[in-house]
Design a binder for these strands. Structure first.
Lengths: 173, 173
DNA sequence: TATTGTTATACTCTATAACTATA
DNA sequence: TATAGTTATAGAGTATAACAATA
């Protein structure tokens, strides 16, 4: 298991052949300070604090891992939900993902510009959303990178803990 | 246990005496649509998706509950870390909470303006941070509201699950 | 040269409001 | 009158770069 810093910085923790971590001998110019640990105080009793910290670390790894395809978490979620529910309206997609319709409109313009998503007119005021052929092709590559990200996560928190966390949180998604 | 929507909207779910939820008879003007559930697709396998969803719901409850004192999660975390580590520098606080020094500088200006935090000059380029008397007084009220928020969270996810989630994530904070 | 704190800029995300065109 | 989609604006949060003062 890696430590959180390694995941955030995209650098594997130095480890001996026997699995013990190797500390830096001395502080070097480009490196951050030894980072003396402060007391958390009452913060230690707040679920939101830990949720936020882990969520930020996870998103940073996602963004770094998917940088080659320039896809951010929100875009990825929209592509997957369209894949799983082709032909639905923007309103339906937005409600499912809790994305404001204003924000979703701009995201879809971007996805349409990249030729990954197509909008067909519905009853006159609605648009039905589909992946294009290009979108399906791109999504295959994107999902492969997302799977790599998820593997890295399993390395960070441990496979069993990752599964446990997902099962604990799934009903609130 | 409440459902996520109840927490997000600050409205308790209508429940019969036998614990069954009561659905709306018909769609009313001000109310959102019935919200047909879409398939999550591959999103269902991503820890980050569930982490983000729960984290947003938790922060929204925090912000709403602490609205009377106008304190946001990041400000609250800074107040607590100063309380637990009086006299430390901005750099130390920022590293502990993963807040950029540029952002922390502006946050501290705001907290100083409200007379909650005091900066005493350190070795010439550092500032030592302390709560003022007003800060201690305000923090008592703030912590009481934060405790109410945490109680609401326990109601949302269940007390045992809340504790389990914290224990699973604590080492990554 | 490096660090601390500061200011400034840019981009993402969230939250609104206002507008159109349709129903 | 309500809904779907769009555009615009404002605020928080994040990520940089540049700068002055100090070590």
């Amino acid at each position: 298991m890696m430590d959180a810093r390694a995941l955030r910085k995209g650098r594997p923790a130095a480890v001996t052949r026997k699995g013990r971590k190797v500390g830096r001998a001395a502080t070097k110019p480009g490196m951050p300070k030894p980072a003396e640990k402060l007391a958390l105080g009452a913060l230690d009793g707040h679920l939101g604090y830990f949720l936020r910290r882990l969520q930020v670390a996870v998103f940073q790894d996602f963004i770094r891992t998917l940088a080659p395809v320039d896809v951010r978490p929100a875009q990825y979620s929209v592509l997957l939900i369209i894949e799983a529910n082709p032909g639905r309206s923007q309103a339906a997609i937005g409600q499912a993902l809790h994305i404001e319709r204003a924000r979703l409109a701009r995201m879809l313009h971007e996805l349409e510009r990249r030729r990954w998503v197509e909008r067909r007119d519905g009853d006159g005021r609605t648009h039905s959303l589909f992946l294009t052929g290009d979108g399906v092709t791109a999504l295959a590559r994107i999902k492969a990178l997302a799977a790599r990200h998820e593997q890295q996560l399993a390395g960070l928190v441990g496979p069993k803990r990752r599964k446990l966390l997902m099962d604990l949180m799934r009903e609130f998604g």
